[in-house]
Nucleic acid binder design. Structure first.
Length: 306
DNA sequence: GCGACAG
DNA sequence: ATCTTGTCGC
């Protein structure tokens, strides 16, 4: 009859072929070229602090004075980028660049750009999908509102926690020549570090009262850190060095950007605003209908609504 | 060969 | 990334 004999096998194949198909959308030679470009740009990567600001203490104190005497400026402009996709057409997307004040987290600057990239997301090559629209956004910022140029940039995705040690946060940091930090929501498995392993470590730390776990690979390299950013968080966020910053400073910046949500506020804003923008642009945002149903919201980890 | 796979 | 569904809390 027309009954299938190997339903399980089929399911497995579909899963696998789905991934393969995605990969095939980008020619093998292009992927090799991309990997080469990553390795080349990586030579310009700086994994230590190279900037002239400091994170001010909430209350003006001796620390702040000391830093100012060293010729440093207080951290005041924090940037973040994110890209959202149309739910009806994954090729249609919108990139956002926002700049928030520190420590008040007001959105000082926001700009959006339609993503014209035809490439799909391929693990290990996220930056190539995002760079075209982000380049436009940064050029526009530099040209029209240079006073808002961020002192540090948060990128959702990874920095050096990457199979070639050069993830999107590093890529963007090097290309734009800006200190950058990678903040991921899940782990990109590399050097023996896995999602499952990190989760377990994170749980153990929690029992001991800790909220931070360095991610050390089998090779002994420190790839980043897992931070349980709020008490309610079930999963940690994954921090890694992007560019022109060291891991501990990156962690300090991310910590400073946590308000009451798991995701650092600048990234949250970029995420949220790009989502609204993509709906407006592509998904026929109809005033009449949205009133009834409400727009699909993305849940934040802890619940307060804003 | 097998499993894994940021957004 | 996006979709679902359900649950808790204000």
């Amino acid at each position: 009859m027309d009954q299938e004999n190997h339903p399980e096998e089929e399911k497995k194949e579909t899963k696998q072929s789905k991934f393969n198909k995605l990969q095939e959308q980008v020619d093998e030679s292009i992927r090799e070229q991309w990997a080469e470009e990553q390795n080349q740009l990586k030579e310009s990567l700086i994994e230590e602090d190279k900037f002239e600001w400091y994170i001010p203490h909430k209350d003006d104190g001796p620390y702040n004075e000391e830093k100012e005497n060293e010729g440093l400026e207080p951290l005041e402009f924090i940037g973040a980028v994110d890209i959202s996709y149309s739910k009806t057409d994954s090729q249609k997307a919108c990139a956002a660049l926002v700049v928030l004040s520190y420590p008040s987290f007001d959105v000082l600057y926001e700009d959006y750009e339609i993503d014209t990239t035809e490439y799909p997301y391929i693990p290990g090559f996220l930056a190539f999908k995002e760079i075209p629209s982000l380049t436009i956004l940064f050029n526009r910022l530099k040209e029209k509102s240079p006073e808002f140029w961020p002192q540090v940039l948060l990128v959702d995705g990874n920095g050096i926690l990457h199979n070639r040690g050069f993830g999107a946060a590093s890529h963007i940091g090097v290309v734009m020549d800006i200190p950058s930090i990678g903040v991921g929501k899940t782990v990109f498995a590399v050097d023996g570090i896995t999602q499952k392993g990190v989760k377990e470590m994170s749980q153990e730390k929690l029992l001991k009262g800790g909220d931070l776990e360095y991610l050390t690979g089998k090779s002994g390299k420190h790839w980043g850190a897992a931070l349980r950013s709020t008490d309610e968080s079930k999963n940690p966020i994954i921090i890694s060095v992007g560019h022109r910053i060291c891991l501990d400073t990156a962690i300090a910046v991310v910590r400073a950007c946590i308000t009451k949500y798991r995701i650092p506020e600048p990234i949250r804003q970029a995420d949220k605003r790009s989502r609204v923008w993509v709906q407006k642009t592509y998904d026929n945002f109809d005033q009449h209908h949205k009133k009834k149903k409400g727009v699909a919201k993305k849940k934040d980890d802890p619940s307060p609504e804003d």
